[in-house]
Design a protein around this nucleic acid. Sequence first.
DNA 1: CCTCCGTGCGACAACGTTGTCGTCGTGGGT
DNA 2: ACCCACGACGACAACGTTGTCGCACGGAGG
Lengths: 350, 350
Amino acid sequence: MPASTDRPGFRPAPPVRPTMKDVAAAAGVGLKTVSRVVNGEPGVSEDTARRVRSVIDALGFRRNDGARLLRQGARTGSVGLLLEDVADPFYSQLSRAVEEVVRAHGSLLLTGSSAEDSARERELALGFCARRVDGLVVVPTSADHAYLAPELTAGTAMVSVDRPMPGLDVDTVLADNRTGAATGASHLLRQGHRRIGYLGDAPDIYTAAERLAGYREAMAAAGCPVEEPWVAMGRPDPLELRFALARMLTGPEPVTALLCGNNRTTVAVLRELAGRVERPALVGFDDFELADLLAVPVTVVAQDPALMGRTAAELLFRRLRGETAAAQQVVVRTRLVPRGSGELTPPATR
Amino acid sequence: MPASTDRPGFRPAPPVRPTMKDVAAAAGVGLKTVSRVVNGEPGVSEDTARRVRSVIDALGFRRNDGARLLRQGARTGSVGLLLEDVADPFYSQLSRAVEEVVRAHGSLLLTGSSAEDSARERELALGFCARRVDGLVVVPTSADHAYLAPELTAGTAMVSVDRPMPGLDVDTVLADNRTGAATGASHLLRQGHRRIGYLGDAPDIYTAAERLAGYREAMAAAGCPVEEPWVAMGRPDPLELRFALARMLTGPEPVTALLCGNNRTTVAVLRELAGRVERPALVGFDDFELADLLAVPVTVVAQDPALMGRTAAELLFRRLRGETAAAQQVVVRTRLVPRGSGELTPPATR
DNA sequence: CCTCCGTGCGACAACGTTGTCGTCGTGGGT
DNA sequence: ACCCACGACGACAACGTTGTCGCACGGAGG
C-alpha cells in the first residue's frame, strides 16, 4: 500500500461539516425530525419542515451517506470497475457503457486501472471492497483471484469482462477471440497469402493467447505451417516490434500479410510500416477510430466494447437483484470489417 | 434521482459480512484486540495475533472502511472525477493522469460522466459529496456551480480542469485556448489562406467560445473579415456538419482552409471531406491518435491532456495537504504540430 | 367530564469501528 | 514478602444516521 501516511506537517483544522444534530439544535427541533425532513418522511408539520429546510440550506448540511449506510446495513449504491488502462480506447468505450448502466441503476462508479499488474489490481479490488461496493466489474489480470472469494460469498456481486477470472466462478463476458482471430487469418488466406505473421500481446494475457490459438488453427486448417519467426508476442515495445517486423518482412521467405492481435499493436505496426517499403496485407483485431480514413483503410476484426461493458454491467445488476443461477458465460461476437488493407493480395499475384 | 427503488420482488437474504465482533467471538478474544490486530497496533501477543489472523482468514473478514471513517472522522481517501465523457480520448487521457496521481496518494477514484448535462453533473457531484469524497476534480458544464459552495467551505477540495467553474472560486487548469486557436489560424493565414472556415462545438462551452475568439482575433489581426457562413458552432451532428461544410466549400468564394475546434469535430470533418472533392487545408485543435498516419497527415494545435490532469490532481492534493493560498489558475500551453494538412496552400497559388 | 385516537415529535439504541481508560496478572526490585 | 511497573487485553463511548417506541397535545365522541 503506497503510504497513505501523508506526514502532515500541520493540518489546518479541517472545517467540520454540520450534522443533523447541528441542524436540529439550530432549528430548535429534535434530531429525528431533521432526519424525517431530509428523507421526506411523513409526520412533520409543514411549518416545522420549512424551518428545518431553511436551516439546512443556511448551514449547507448534507447527509453523510457513510453513516446512513452503516445504520441501514443496506447496499452502498456503488460499483467498482477494474480495468487495465482507461486511456485505451477499447477500455474507455467499455468503461462508458458500464458507467451508463450503473448510472441508470442509480449507483456510482469507482474506477481503477491495474496497468496489468496483479498486485495493483488486488490492492484496488480490496480497496473497493473495503468501501463496500455492491459489485465489481473486472477485466482481470492472469493472476489467481481466489482472494476475492470471501467478498463473493459475502454478497459482493462480481462480473468478469474481456477475460475469465482465474480461480473464481463468476459471470463472464468474452469476445469470441479465437474464432475472430481465425476469421481474420482465414480472410488473409483467402486472398492467397500463405505466409502470414502474427503480432500479439504477451501470451499470459488470455485474449492474446486465444487469438494466437485462433490464428494457428486457421493456418493449420489451411495447411500452412507457421514458422516461428512469424510470431511475435509481447508488450508493445517499439524497438522489439521493429525487430520482429524486420525479421518477418525480410529474408528469402518474408511474410506477405500480418495479423495484429490488438489495438495498440495494430497502430504500432502501422506506424512502423510507414517507415518501411514493404506493404504487407494487414488485418487488425479490434477496431479503432480512423481505421477507415488511413491511406490504406485497415481491415479489422471488430469487437463491440460497448456491448461487452453493457452486458457485464447488466449481469452484475441481475445478480444484485437476487439472481442466483450458476455463473454464466456470454460470448460477444466479433465481426470482420473489410476496408482494404486485408484485401491486398500477395506480391506474386499482384 | 433515477429511482434507486428496485422494487425487490424477493431479495434472497443478502449474506452478511463478518464483523470484528464475529471475529472476536470466534477467536475468543475481545473486540478491541481484533481491531488492534487488523490495524497492526502493538499490545497484542504474537500468539493471540496469530490466532486472530487465522480466524480472520477463515471467516473472510474485511474491515468496514465506512464505519472506520465514521469513527475517525478522517478523510475518506477518495476523490471524485467529473467529466463530459470518459470515452473521448481527450478526457480518457486526462482521466488516466488524474487516476495516477490519486493512486500515488493512496486514494480511490470515483468517476462520472456528465454528458454535458448540468443536472446530471450536479446529481453526480452531490452524490460524490454525500459519499464524502475528499476532493473533486471537475470538467464543469457552463451552469452555475454555486450549489457546491457548502461543500467547498466544508473542506471538500475542488479543482476545475479544462474550463473554469462558474460561480465558484477554485483552482483551475486551462489550456491556452484562445492563443492556441489564434496560432492555428495564423498558421493557415501564413500559408496564404484568406478565407478560413471555423467549425467548433456549441458556444456555451467555454473552450469552444475561447477558441472561436482566438480564431476571430487572428483573422482580424490579419485584416481578414470573417463572413458568417464560415463559422459553424454546435454539437457535432453529421448532417449539420455536412450542410455547414457544403456552405463553406461551395459558392463563388469558398473557404480554402478549415480550423476545427476540437477532436471530434476534426474527425467528423475528415470523414466528411473523404466524400468530397475539395481538399481544403486543415488544422485541428487537440491532437488525436493516427493524425500522422492519414493520407494527408493532419496538422494540429496539440493540447496536453495528461499534463492538465496531473496538474489538476496535484493542485487538489496540495489543497488537501492544507494549502490555503487564494485559488490559482494554471494555463497549460498548446503546441502547433505541423504535419501537412495545415501547410497546404490555397488553390490559386498551388 | 372523561376517554380514545391521531398527529407531531423526541429519546434511545444500534450499525461497525476506534480512542480512552481501566483491569488483571506477572515479574523484577527492594 | 510487598510494591510497582508493565504488558496484554477488554469495557465503553462515540462517530452520524435511522428504526422503534413512547409521550404530549388537541379534538371528537361518549
